[in-house]
Amino acid sequence: MSEWAPRRFYKDATVEEAEGGFIVHLDGRPLRTPGKVPLVVPTRAIAEAMAEEWRAQAEKIDPRTMPFTRTANSAIDKVAPQHPEVADMLAEYGDSDLLCYRAESPAELVARQAERWDPLLDWAAREMGARLEPRAGIMHASQPEAPLRILAERTHGFTPFELAAFHDLVALTGSLVLGFAATGQEHDAKELWALSRLDETFQEELWGEDEEAQEAAEIKRQAFLHAHRFFALCQAA
């Protein structure tokens, strides 16, 4: 049995100004979220990206091909009503940040982690005043309170739309530092994703690639790149 999908019921999608931002109209009717709230987004750039997704739909509407619409829905229906809780959850990644947990062996991996991850920890210390310290092994060791507080305050400062994108930047990499790095222009998003996969890449070099694992990783990579672009468009003029 094939999955049910709604048929396209409109001819065109246009962007209009609305109270508090911009909204997509389908043949003159404004979009609403699954929670029945007007789908008003903060920038025209996000609205235009959403409109393009709706224009690109064929005879049947496929939500899987509409990441901007999906993230905007999440920002309004899920993140905004529980902003402090979402921010707290993401800030907790700082105490177990991927970049801080280092291998004890082999020496080649230890050196590679130090070479490629230390500059990001240095960047966080320099740009945000939050110095996280690396640990050898897999046992948890708490980070100092001061840098965690700084990172938490910055996380709470994001708007619901920014926080919705930031959620994926952090959760997909397992790193609060990589998430923050992806919100600016100083670092390349593809390189940041590669840094989050450093351990997996090392294992693939030793034992070869697993096709299913590669496919799963590519899905996550595309989601990370989308979150990076969504965050950038939140700040577009």
Rank of each mutant, 00 (worst) to 15 (best):
A75R: 07
E211N: 07
R44G: 09
F230M: 02
Q214P: 00
A194R: 14
L99Q: 08
R126W: 01
L31F: 05
P38R: 07
E3G: 13
R116W: 05
L195I: 15
E205T: 09
I76D: 05
A13Y: 01
V15S: 07
T43H: 01
A236N: 03
R29K: 13
Y101N: 06
L178F: 01
R149V: 02
H25P: 02
E17F: 10
I219P: 00
H167D: 12
G94R: 10
R55V: 05
A182S: 10
F161R: 11
E162A: 14
G28Q: 07
L132N: 07
Q235H: 14
R229W: 01
Y101V: 03
H226R: 03
P30R: 09
A232C: 06
E59M: 11
F22N: 03
P42R: 14
L148Q: 12
R221C: 07
P134G: 11
Q222A: 10
A182V: 02
E186L: 12
A141R: 15
P42Q: 14
A217H: 04
W207K: 11
E186C: 00
K36G: 08
Y93H: 13
R197Y: 01
L121M: 09
T159L: 06
L172R: 11
G157P: 08
I150F: 00
Y101S: 08
L151S: 02
F202N: 04
F230D: 06
C100V: 07
Y101D: 04
V15R: 10
A194C: 04
R197E: 13
E215M: 01
K11H: 14
F158T: 06
V40A: 05
I23Y: 12
M1R: 10
E186P: 00
F161K: 10
D12G: 07
A125W: 00
E145H: 09
A75K: 03
V15I: 08
T33I: 09
R7G: 13
F158P: 03
R70F: 08
L198W: 06
L151C: 00
G129S: 07
L169M: 11
V86S: 10
R131E: 14
E211Q: 12
R126Q: 13
G94T: 11
D88P: 01
L31V: 04
K60T: 15
L178C: 06
A5V: 12
E52K: 12
E92V: 05
R112Y: 02
G157A: 15
A18G: 02
A80H: 07
H167P: 00
W54E: 14
I150G: 01
T65Q: 15
K78R: 12
L98I: 06
M1A: 14
L195H: 11
S196C: 06
H167Q: 13
N73K: 06
Q235N: 13
R229C: 04
G21M: 10
E3C: 07
R135Y: 09
V37F: 04
G28C: 08
P119N: 13
L178M: 03
P119I: 12
Q113T: 01
T14H: 12
V110Y: 09
V86G: 01
R116I: 07
P63R: 09
S175H: 06
G208H: 13
R229N: 10
A227C: 09
K11C: 10
A141N: 11
L233T: 01
P106F: 05
H226D: 02
H25R: 15
T69D: 14
P63N: 08
D27M: 09
W117L: 00
Q214N: 12
F68L: 08
S96E: 13
G129C: 06
M128F: 14
